Amino acid sequence: MHEDKMQQFTWMFIDALVELYEWKIKCPAVWPVMMGASVDGTQKPTNEPRDDNVRRNRKNFCYKYNIAGLNYQVALATWTNRVLYSRADPGSTHDITAMRKEFIGMIPAGCRVIADSGYTGKSDHEKEVFAVKNCLDDDEVAKFKAIVRARQECFNSRITSYKCFKQKFTHGIDKHPKCFKAVVVQLQYAIEDTSDAGEPLDTV
């Protein structure tokens, strides 16, 4: 098949997966009593956005790779194989800054989100919501947090197994978030599938 035709069909397939995103990736309006979540970000390099007036766009600068990129956030339910939320931000966006934009407002009082030190908040509300590693945690709590964070890292590693995340993305910075949504949808189907073909996350 001609390369141009192949690219056309590839983007048609990606667009079809993106259409499923709003249906598959949902944060519940009312959280169950025992529901918890974890969140983590991953940065991915892309090509520099073209701008005739600005040679370097520091907003999209990704410090991890020292190049233009995007910062992706993913939140998982703790007790079920569900992706609750994801978003894409410019590479310079700090993890907790990305969460302040939307996700933190979705978390009801009494529910906590296990995260790494990048989500250490300044306000009392943020400190209450994000459960980061704490030297005052007893052994059981510390172990539980470590397991949940490892589970989150497992999901993020599956994202990076896709070619569009393994290497620098050169098809335009505006298209990469679309690929991200398509990957998240595919992984949601994989982790919820309990058949031999499924790839559920290890439950805590």
Rank of each mutant, 00 (worst) to 15 (best):
M1Y: 13
F9G: 01
W11F: 09
W11P: 01
D15Y: 13
V18E: 06
L20T: 05
Y21L: 08
Y21E: 10
E22N: 15
W23Q: 15
K26A: 14
K26M: 14
P28C: 05
A29P: 02
A29S: 15
P32M: 05
V33Q: 04
V33G: 00
M34C: 13
M35D: 10
G36M: 13
A37M: 12
S38D: 06
D40S: 12
D40Y: 01
G41Y: 00
G41L: 01
T42S: 13
T42K: 06
P45N: 04
R50L: 07
R50G: 09
D51N: 12
D51G: 01
N53H: 13
R55W: 10
R58N: 08
N60S: 09
K64C: 06
K64R: 14
I67H: 02
A68E: 01
L70E: 00
N71T: 06
N71R: 06
T80L: 15
R82K: 15
R82E: 15
L84K: 11
L84Q: 09
Y85L: 08
Y85P: 02
Y85R: 05
S86V: 05
S92D: 01
I96D: 05
T97N: 11
T97Y: 05
K101L: 14
K101C: 04
K101R: 14
F103K: 01
I104R: 12
M106G: 00
I107V: 12
P108W: 12
A109E: 10
I114E: 03
I114Q: 00
Y119V: 09
K122P: 02
H125E: 09
E126W: 08
E126Y: 07
K127H: 13
K127W: 09
E128A: 15
F130K: 04
F130R: 05
V132F: 05
K133H: 04
N134M: 01
D138F: 10
E140V: 07
F144I: 09
A146N: 06
A146T: 12
I147W: 03
I147Q: 13
R149Y: 03
R151S: 12
R151N: 08
C154R: 09
F155E: 04
N156F: 06
N156G: 00
S157G: 09
R158G: 02
I159H: 01
K168H: 02
F169N: 02
F169V: 07
H171W: 03
H171L: 05
H176G: 04
V183A: 03
V183W: 02
L187H: 03
L187I: 10
A190E: 11
A190C: 12
T194K: 14
L201S: 07
T203I: 14
